[in-house]
């Protein structure tokens, strides 16, 4: 369950690069009227600041807010006509919000909240080099999406816990069922092997008796007393054990045992398949 959450967060943490808006930066010798035209253009309608870059390095931003502010002041002071063709150098905010590419969305959010001044848009740099800006609109959307995703991940985790609880009861029943299914063949297989083992040693003893008798019958020096003693012993063993009949019975018990072992293997195979498909489902 926990892994699912962590995995979800992991995906969400890689979001800064996806938000970058690689707008063309301006140089510090741009004129006020040129910047005004940029702010008024359709392309930059959502942009609240324009990055000022020289030799690839960020030197500051012109914020829409600050720009308008100064523009208004100039108009009020009737200095507008006089200033509009001057460079925007004096309009530059030289300590803009700037975030390194590798920072997480969460860290960026904290940083922006603490340092926001004239523009909530911020610049993305990599090792100090300008890459683009992130507009506050996109940033807020991303944070919102992430919260939603966290909630979804949480809901997902809850759902998993609930379904795990739902699974637990039938699982218990299934385990009991499987235990019984294995128990039945296990019962006769174990019994058959036990019986076979006992029969095996009896038959072993009997064969040893026969062999000793045959050896003595082939031996010219063997005493007839010894031979008759061995024959009596064999007669005793034969009356105690009908070897032919028992071995015949044992034959069918062997077949049954193999069948039982086959049943158990089949069940184990099914369990393996079940656990694989259950893992996929969860």
């Amino acid at each position: 369950m926990q892994n699912a959450c962590v995995m979800g967060m992991d995906v969400l943490l890689r979001e800064i690069p996806g938000l970058i808006n690689s707008i063309e930066p301006i140089a510090s010798d741009h004129t006020v009227v040129e910047v005004a035209e940029l702010f008024l253009s359709r392309v930059y309608v959502d942009v609240l600041c324009l990055p000022v870059v020289e030799n690839g390095r960020l030197i500051g931003v012109i914020s829409r807010h600050r720009f308008l502010d100064m523009y208004l002041k100039d108009m009020y002071l009737k200095q507008f006509a006089h200033r509009q063709h001057r460079s925007i150098r004096n309009y530059i905010n030289e300590t803009p919000l700037s975030v390194e590419l590798t920072q997480s969305l969460a860290d960026a959010a904290v940083y922006v909240a603490e340092n926001i001044s004239d523009s909530p848009d911020f610049v993305i740099t990599r090792h100090g080099k300008y890459l683009g800006i992130v507009t506050v609109k996109d940033f807020l959307r991303a944070i919102d999406a992430r919260r939603g995703a966290s909630r979804a991940a949480l809901d997902g985790a809850c759902l998993q816990i609930r379904s795990a609880q739902q699974i637990a009861v039938p699982l218990g029943q299934m385990v009991a069922g499987v235990a019984h299914e294995i128990n039945a063949p296990l019962g006769y297989v174990q019994n058959n092997v036990t019986i076979g083992q006992a029969l095996f040693s009896q038959v072993h003893e009997m064969i040893a008796g026969y062999e000793a008798l045959v050896d003595n019958l082939l031996d010219e020096h063997a005493s007839s007393d010894e031979i008759s003693r061995q024959m009596q012993q064999i007669t005793r063993m034969r009356s105690a054990l009908n070897a032919q009949e028992m071995l015949g019975e044992m034959q069918s018990l062997m077949t049954d045992s193999l069948y039982g072992i086959g049943r158990i293997s089949e069940l184990v195979q099914n369990l393996k398949t079940f656990s694989r498909s259950a893992a996929v489902a969860i």
Binding site: P185, G187, N191, E249, L253
Partner: peptide
Amino acid sequence: EERILRSLRMLFL
């Protein structure tokens, strides 16, 4: 289960 019967039978045969 017949196999259980056959198996038990051998114990008591």
